[in-house]
Design a binder for these strands. Structure first.
Lengths: 206, 206
DNA sequence: CAAAATTAATCAATCGATTGATTAATTTGC
DNA sequence: GCAAATTAATCAATCGATTGATTAATTTTG
């Protein structure tokens, strides 16, 4: 044991705290205490608090793209690709709910736009992948000619809102995405709804 | 002239700053300078920085409910009510984009849950109104029996995501919601898409 | 009506606490 | 023994909040 180096200790602690308290709400002292490292180590390894934040974001965002591209290259109908994308996307976001919430929170701040430019850029590429799949379906005559970007935004927006406000889909009970049982329940409902909706929306009436 | 009292000066300045920099990122000194009031006035009138924030939120949220209820009570088919709700909802959010972004940003923080409880409560009531309209349509046989809450979340999530990331729907150009021309363009596209999607999703195949 | 008393509004100054960051000294590992 | 890693101590800056004093507006009183 005892194989954890301080640098990753800081990253792990910082991610947890950023998710819970946001960037501004997390102090370097808090990160230091939570990670067991000295305050100066943060600037020693990452230069600044923002340096820590950026390293966390980059690591996560890079992992997102590959998964979608795998689906895109499969030899199945566009319709099935789309259903798969929805399933993977919803699972990915819901499984990392607090990170997703934090990311949108901080990205929505108009501050430091130059810092987030690359991250937004990388995220935007996910859109292209889905766009291509829908275009493929339209070209093959399987899909109606809809507002592609808007349709994608509807899928993403639905997932995002379920993540930020899972209680919205519960008339009475209070769902908790940190509870695995609740999360699986929500995930199933979300995926079923999205697949139903996107198909009724995209598929031509017989 | 000279009819602006300091209290509303503070509210106006604070709302602008909160929208731009978030709650944590806005200092009372900044609010004081922007409003032309003395720092002490903020605590004199509102008790604390959070007091200012809450007063702004409450004022806005209360205005939301009435509009929806008016539509609900109209003597038109559920289908038309729903189309109207989408139109009004989208317009309302897009016209106050920066406020909407700020609200979601701050509400998503798990901090101060007791403070935001009432606001979330009030927002949740909007859901009931829309839910009733869809139930009405299902009862009358006009609508399919879908996952009502999820369908509502899709509408809200789409509007929300267009508001936070309008560039997602623009393949090339950069839309700006502060530009009135861009905003109207986006609004039309958004409403058209949502109305099309919700109808293809809810309406039974002929 | 006008003087006195009271309340509300505003101010500059400053409080202690906390912020992110840096320094210089020390320890560790090879 | 030397470079990398880690520490405690400290920096200036800023934070939200409060103070006591001052002015403006209102109410009360005779």
């Amino acid at each position: 044991m005892e194989k954890t180096d301080k640098k990753t200790d800081i990253l792990i602690a910082a991610e947890k705290l950023f998710c819970e308290y946001g960037f501004e709400g997390t102090s370097t002292r808090h990160i230091a205490k939570e990670s067991g490292a000295n305050m100066a180590m943060i600037n020693y390894y990452f230069g600044s608090k923002m340096g820590v934040f950026m390293e966390i974001m980059e690591e996560r965002v890079l992992g997102f793209k590959s998964q979608l591209n795998l689906i895109k290259e499969e030899k199945i109908p566009a319709r099935d690709k789309l259903l798969k994308v929805i399933e993977k996307y919803a699972s990915r976001i819901l499984n990392n709910a607090s990170f997703h919430k934090m990311m949108h929170r901080e990205l929505s701040l108009s501050l430091r736009p130059e810092v987030f430019a690359q991250i937004k850029e990388a995220m935007g590429q996910n859109l292209f992948v889905i766009e291509d799949i829908i275009k493929e379906g339209i070209a093959s005559g399987d899909f109606r000619s809809v507002d592609i970007r808007m349709s994608i935004v509807s899928v993403m927006g639905t997932i995002s809102m379920v993540t930020t406000s899972p209680n919205k889909i519960a008339p009475d009970s209070n769902y908790d995405l940190n509870n695995e049982e609740d999360r699986e329940t929500i995930k199933k409902r979300l995926i079923a709804h999205l697949q139903d909706m996107i198909l009724t929306h995209l598929t031509k009436p017989q």
